[in-house]
Amino acid sequence: MRIGAHVDRQDPLAAAAERKAEVVQFFLSDPQAWVDPEERSDAAALKASDVDVFVHAPYRINVATTNNRIRIPSRKLLFTYATGAATVGAKGLIVHGGHVDKPDDIGKGIDNWRKTFVYAQENGGFATPVLIENTAGGDNACARRFDNLARLWDAIGEYNPGFCLDTCHAHAGGENLLGIVDRVKAITGRIDLIHANDSRDAFDSHRDRHDNIGNGQIDPDLIVAVIQAAGAPVVVETPGGAEGQGGDIAFLRDRVG
């Protein structure tokens, strides 16, 4: 089981060494901006490293929305980010499932996801596998509740998307972690990455606030059980820098075995 952390994009390999991480995840540019991935001087070193690399797409991306001023730039930036992620040897590009604004029909958002994969296919395909991540809030979210996730996969499954399961998002989004891996795999057929995060807030709170494992509202045994059942690489997106994340990694490595 390979376990690591989301780290600052400045020097991911040094951050991995600090945390004794076998996996790193990072952004390729400012996650709050509409900017293309930055060219990296350490791209060759990242590709040659024995550390597994994952890239997270910017938070602003929402390919599901019916707002053309957001959806079209989102679609283009996701494609560009996948190309950038390939230059560092990323095994996957994680992107949030997105949402539609009320009172729009979520079916329109799901169809917009399908159009995103069609757009990518028409332009040569995503250079890095896209892993759609479940989200914590929003009644009109495409990947918060699993009934909507099933509708999404019915629409895009033929394009072979990947899936990233976030434990904090599931808990805060109202999906019980007990047996969650089987429920996800019954829909997607796969889990490519686990975001192993505790939650500061209660079940079904709709609040996306991560905490260190054992400090929040989720039973650590449930997080461990999810990891064991999924058999996928693990990334902690928890606070505390190298010390806090290093502690979470050490805990999981000891418990997961």
Rank of each mutant, 00 (worst) to 15 (best):
H210K: 05
G97V: 13
N112M: 02
G189T: 06
A196M: 06
D50P: 01
L46Y: 02
G174I: 11
Y119T: 08
H195N: 01
R75H: 02
A150F: 00
A82H: 03
N212Q: 12
A86E: 14
C168L: 06
A127K: 15
N123M: 00
K20Q: 15
E133I: 10
A196H: 10
N140Y: 10
L165M: 11
D201L: 04
I110C: 04
E243I: 11
R9T: 03
M1K: 12
R253I: 05
R209K: 15
R183F: 08
D254V: 00
I227P: 04
R40Q: 13
N140P: 00
R144E: 05
G174L: 06
D192T: 07
L165D: 05
I61K: 03
A143C: 14
L165F: 12
C164H: 12
A82R: 04
A230D: 04
K20N: 14
A44D: 15
A127T: 10
R144F: 11
E39A: 15
G124R: 02
D166M: 06
P161A: 13
H56D: 07
G157P: 09
D50V: 04
H99N: 12
G98L: 11
N68E: 15
Q228D: 10
A45W: 06
L152P: 01
H171D: 08
V235Y: 06
V23Y: 02
H56T: 12
V181K: 03
L178M: 00
C142P: 09
F251C: 00
A120N: 10
A202E: 15
H6I: 11
P239A: 14
D204N: 15
A44N: 13
H96R: 09
F126L: 10
I106P: 03
D111R: 14
A43I: 08
A250R: 10
L152V: 07
L131C: 01
I191T: 10
K47Q: 15
A229G: 04
V51H: 02
G138Y: 07
G107T: 03
V53H: 08
P31C: 05
A82I: 04
P161N: 12
D50E: 15
N67S: 11
G137W: 01
P129M: 08
E122A: 14
V63L: 00
A155L: 02
A85D: 07
